[in-house]
Write a protein that binds this DNA or RNA. Structure first.
Lengths: 230, 230
DNA sequence: TTGACTTAGTGAATTAATGCACTAAGCCCT
DNA sequence: AGGGCTTAGTGCATTAATTCACTAAGTCAA
């Protein structure tokens, strides 16, 4: 291990740092230089104590009586999250969603350029979508090596998703973002995050149903967006 | 309030029920009739006690020494999540992502047909994408009423997302799935879930970065997909 | 019928996350 | 120089979630 022991940041806090970062970017864009934990809390829709505690995991970067500096804290969060550099992405699965994500600004603008897209369907391989040509999933290993790709995004059918994950792991990828509604099995050294859009809607329908059953009485009323960990 | 007091199910459990449901669907598709908490736990990648506790919130639907019946439990989960019916969806924002989601099977197949898509850009209004014609966001209220729409999906730019949310709320929508990287402000009676794809990648990059810094030593090693609540 | 075995259900301990409320620092005004 | 004001940092109580480990119920074979 190197000199500096990396602080152990609670999972829940890690998931909030990107949200804070996004807000700080907006503040910077409007020339705000400083903010207090109260202000950030209001913008992020969380408790101010939580903001302070979350930020304290990064170090002691605020000034009492004053607040935090937007640019400095932005820097610190980016450093902590590994965002001082770009991370190249490959999309596996050139269907609707895959192609949409390949074009999606949101990835590039946050530092995750989609460098390649692959599929296993000969009918799709060779097609071009927004400056990317769909490659063959068989070449994944070479592509990952040559293009220095760090993150794989799975947008295949559920049926194909495990094979896609296997291919990514085989190609040396250690971070996977999975959109197929499947619990992937991967070595424990690989980080997997699954975004199942169906699940999101089903959680919403739970609250919608609850509203109907309780006649909208706010007692056991629907919650904010605080449900569910992954 | 009606007769039957609805059980209070912990948030964390609610978020897992859709995952169990998905697995049960797969089991049913392969003609499995019964399963034990251990089996489901293995498939879902969680602890067996957690599975039993989660399922116990629904009622006492297992048989000791035997397990749970796939079809019966499927029914119970669907009932609890409000999935005995379909919920119509409108997509606001006819960009890449919006159009892809409008076509996306995953919504329809899970009981959430996308009935309408709207935008505020005259250049997009009137275009047809997979049997849907892009409508004017100004007509949202009528569309929601006429098409009996329950859920709104926001796929606009961040800049436009709050206006989209306001329009949905104004149109009477009480459940919103937001893809814009913005913390929306809505009445507390409205359920909002935000899926920020950038955030997902940034969480992955945190672990990727950690791997680099610790030389991949598995000690403070990257985690499974258990980070982060919303 | 009995006894060995399996597995759901759950009380209780543990761990993680949250949020209050206090303390410590710094700014600014007089 | 000092006092009032603001706000970060944090110990601690509370709440939520997880997991253990036991108990209760059932099956099945002899």
């Amino acid at each position: 291990m190197t000199q500096l022991q990396r602080r152990k940041i609670p999972d829940a806090a890690i998931a909030r740092l990107p949200v804070y970062l996004q807000i700080l970017n907006n503040l910077a864009a409007t020339n705000v230089l400083r903010f207090s934990s109260d202000e950030l809390a209001a913008l992020a829709g969380v408790n101010a104590a939580k903001v302070r505690k979350d930020l304290s995991y990064l170090g002691s970067y605020g000034t009492r009586g004053v607040g935090y500096e937007v640019s400095y804290l932005t820097h610190q969060i980016k450093r902590e999250l590994g965002l001082m550099r770009e991370w190249n992405v490959v999309v596996v699965g050139a269907g609707n969603l895959g192609c949409a994500l390949a074009k999606f600004d949101g990835f590039l603008s946050r530092g995750f350029p989609v460098i390649a897209i692959v599929d296993n369907d000969p009918k799709k391989i060779g097609r071009t979508t927004s400056s990317l040509t769909v490659g063959d999933v068989k070449d994944l290993k070479n592509i990952v090596r040559d293009e220095k790709i760090s993150i794989g995004v799975i947008t295949t059918s559920s049926a194909a998703s495990q094979a896609a994950a296997d291919a990514l792991v085989e190609a040396g990828i250690t971070s996977i973002l999975n959109f197929a509604p499947v619990v992937l099995s991967t070595p424990s050294s690989v980080s997997v995050r699954s975004v199942d859009l169906g699940v999101e809607l089903q959680i919403l329908s739970y609250f919608e149903q609850m509203r109907l059953e309780t006649g909208g009485k706010s007692e056991n009323a629907p919650q904010l967006n605080t449900v569910g960990a992954r």
